Structure formats: structure tokens, C-alpha cells
Simulated assay, not measured.
Amino acid sequence: MEEQSIRVEERQDKKEKPKSEDLIFGRNFTDHMFVMDYTEGLGWHNPSIIPYQNLSISPASMIFHYGQSVFEGLKAFRTENGDVQLFRPEKNVQRLNQSNDRLVIPPIDENLALEAIKQLVAMDSDWVPSTEGTSLYIRPFIISTEPYLGVAPSHYYKFIIIMSPVGSYYKEGINPVKIAVENQYVRAVKGGTGEAKTGGNYASSLKAQELCEKEGYSQVLWLDGVEKKYIEEVGSMNVFFKINGEVVTPALNGSILPGITRDSVIQLLKHWDIPLVERRVSIKELYEAHQNGTLEEAFGSGTAAVISPIGELYWEGHHLVINEGKTGDISKKVYDTITGIQYGKMEDPFDWTVKVEKNSKVRQ
């Protein structure tokens, strides 16, 4: 594919930036956005950074009717010396194309997408907050835009990147959460879209989430959609359990999203020589491990929280309190290490971080 230059249109009336203490996840957006169009026969074209603005598309656009869309989520971090860096952005771009394949969306040029992220962050680098725990959330997404009421892949798409400064996920420190095991609804099944990052997966999870919150639980623990006994994810995060000294995480099976934080946790545990296995794990096995005292720790992993310790599981009338409801040693070590690397406070032996140059090439 011929290399394309990114056209830039700078916003003249810059928006007022919110104070760090007032940041709410996904509510404020930066001055600029990236857009690129796809037309069948022409391919992806006209990559541009433009002022953040509303979209004008037909109400018949296929995204509204058939849900053909994918998205990603990653962050930019302000280091102690004022630099801005990304965390494993190439993995997000790779996964975006994996989702594209499942949703029959034309693949994007991964180098161009990565360059678009870098240039957009460089242009709006003043929006990257510096208060501890804060960051700039980056949301790349693709939607089908062809005005056609027919069930078929669209011939037109938009690839867009928007960004939002976000506050610390743990304002009062990292604390374990209570989780309810979901027995009625399912998140995804093998052969479905569970391994793709597409909006429908999240829409279908809302009912179970609403019900569990009414009962005082933070999230649901999803079981497999066929036998409803094997653990898959927790909320919108991957999940890990420490059982009798060994860390266990559900193996990727076609219905579990391959999380980038999940992969980072796995690499860290192997680096530390902590026993780890990827395999099927049932809720009954967890219950029995709790009963015999070998369920030592549990935590979720994802972009927003990095690590979310699980202090209690509720399953069929049983309250399984884990590690006395406290944050476990592995949870804390993984959280401290990943965030330490992200903010440039710790050595990065894996080359996970990518520095964003303030004067990254921008073509006016």
C-alpha cells in the first residue's frame, strides 16, 4: 500500500481543559480527532487530523441498523520528566485488524494507524494530564457508513480516533471488588464475536451488569455460553486466579477477548518465574479451592483499571471471600510494575513503551 500523508487542519478556538480533579472517564474530549474514509474500489483514503466535531452521516447508515463496528482503547501517559509515552500501541492496532476480519471490515494499514495515533497525541499533548494516576485515553474505532438497509458488509466506512483525558481509576487506592457469578445471561460463545472488540458484545452485557449492581456487586463473572460452568471474563476484563501457588487464567478459546493487559500480566509472571497456566477453569473448581483454602487470590486485568483485585465471589448462595477481602501480593506487584512502566518510573525490559515526540511530523 502506498504511504499516505496525514493532512492536518488545526483548531483555532482551543477548548478549556478540565482540572485533573474534575476528570470523569470519557466525558471530555481533546481539540482534535483523526478521520479516514473507506470507499470500495478506492480503499482507505484521505487520512486527516481535524478539529473535534460532530459527524454528519445518513440515518440509513448501516452502523445504526446492523452494528458493523469495531473499536480499541489505549492510553498516553505523562512521565515524571514531562515526556509523553504510549503503552504497547502496536498491539492495539494489530487487534483492531483482528476485529476487522471478524466483522468483515477492510483491514487498515497498521503503520499508518500507529502514525495517526502518534501524531494526534503529539498535536494534543497539552491534554495529557500530569497528576498521578491520570492519563489520556485514546479511542480508535471504525463504523460502517453506507446508507443501505440490507444485511451485507458495507461498502463505505469511517476510521476515527478521539481522545479523552481521564482521572485516576483508583482515587482512594487499589481496592478489591465484589463480583457476582452470572448464571442466566452469557457474554459470548465460541464462533460468535467474543474475541473481537465490537460494540454488540458490550451492549449485550448491560442487562446482567444492571441486575448485579442492584444486588450490591461491582461486576459479573461470565461463564461459558454452552455449559455455563467454565469461567471466561469478569465484566469487560480478563481474569486471573491464584490457586495453590499457581496462577491460572482462562485459555483463549474464540469467545474471550485477547487482552493486551492480559498478555502483559502473563509476560510479567513468566519473567518473575511465577507458575502460570492458561487452561479451562470451572466455577466448581474455584468453589472447591475456596473450601479447601487454596484459592489465594483473584484479579481482573484491563486497560482502564490495569488490575482490579477481586475480594469476593457470590455463586449460588455462597459468598467466597478471597484473601480476607484484601488485595493480594501478586495483584499489587503486577499493578505497581505495569503502571510504573507506563509512567516511566520503572525499567521497561520488554520495550513496551513508545515515546511520543512533541514535534512529531505533522503536515499542514
Results as ranks from 00 to 15, higher is better:
residue 310 I to W: 02
residue 10 E to N: 11
residue 26 G to T: 02
residue 303 T to K: 06
residue 246 E to G: 13
residue 13 D to F: 09
residue 281 V to N: 05
residue 124 D to A: 04
residue 61 S to C: 07
residue 308 S to Y: 06
residue 315 W to C: 04
residue 1 M to V: 13
residue 170 Y to F: 14
residue 241 F to H: 13
residue 101 D to M: 15
residue 247 V to T: 06
residue 103 L to M: 15
residue 4 Q to E: 09
residue 222 W to F: 06
residue 181 V to G: 01
residue 130 S to M: 06
residue 56 S to I: 12
residue 150 G to I: 05
residue 228 K to T: 10
residue 177 V to Q: 13
residue 267 Q to T: 08
residue 1 M to C: 09
residue 353 T to P: 11
residue 151 V to Q: 03
residue 356 V to I: 09
residue 24 I to R: 14
residue 276 L to Q: 02
residue 289 A to R: 05
residue 107 P to K: 12
residue 129 P to Y: 04
residue 211 L to Q: 14
residue 320 L to H: 14
residue 282 S to F: 01
residue 173 G to C: 02
residue 32 H to A: 09
residue 285 E to R: 12
residue 184 Q to F: 09
residue 30 T to C: 14
residue 110 E to L: 04
residue 292 N to P: 00
residue 12 Q to C: 13
residue 265 V to K: 04
residue 69 S to H: 10
residue 340 G to M: 11
residue 20 S to P: 05
residue 147 P to Q: 10
residue 127 W to E: 08
residue 320 L to M: 15
residue 116 A to E: 00
residue 207 K to V: 03
residue 220 V to R: 07
residue 46 N to R: 15
residue 7 R to L: 11
residue 350 F to K: 09
residue 122 A to S: 14
residue 352 W to I: 08
residue 126 D to P: 10
residue 135 S to C: 03
residue 364 Q to T: 15
residue 270 K to E: 03
residue 209 Q to S: 12
residue 168 S to W: 03
residue 328 G to Q: 02
residue 15 K to Y: 01
residue 37 D to G: 11
residue 306 V to Y: 07
residue 258 P to Y: 07
residue 35 V to F: 00
residue 48 S to I: 08
residue 44 W to F: 01
residue 241 F to T: 13
residue 5 S to I: 13
residue 115 E to T: 15
residue 247 V to L: 09
residue 327 T to M: 13
residue 205 S to M: 11
residue 151 V to F: 07
residue 98 Q to C: 11
residue 318 H to V: 05
residue 276 L to E: 01
residue 191 G to P: 11
residue 351 D to Q: 15
residue 338 I to A: 05
residue 87 F to Q: 07
residue 99 S to H: 05
residue 263 D to I: 10
residue 267 Q to E: 01
residue 297 E to W: 00
residue 259 G to C: 05
residue 14 K to T: 10
residue 7 R to W: 06
residue 193 T to S: 09
residue 93 V to T: 11
residue 203 A to Q: 09
residue 217 Y to S: 11
residue 341 I to W: 01
residue 72 E to P: 00
residue 133 G to V: 02
residue 88 R to I: 08
residue 268 L to S: 02
residue 135 S to K: 07
residue 283 I to K: 04
residue 67 G to I: 01
residue 15 K to Q: 04
residue 214 K to R: 13
residue 359 N to P: 04
residue 278 E to K: 08
residue 100 N to P: 00
residue 302 G to L: 06
residue 94 Q to R: 15
residue 245 G to D: 03
residue 174 I to F: 04
residue 15 K to S: 06
residue 288 E to S: 14
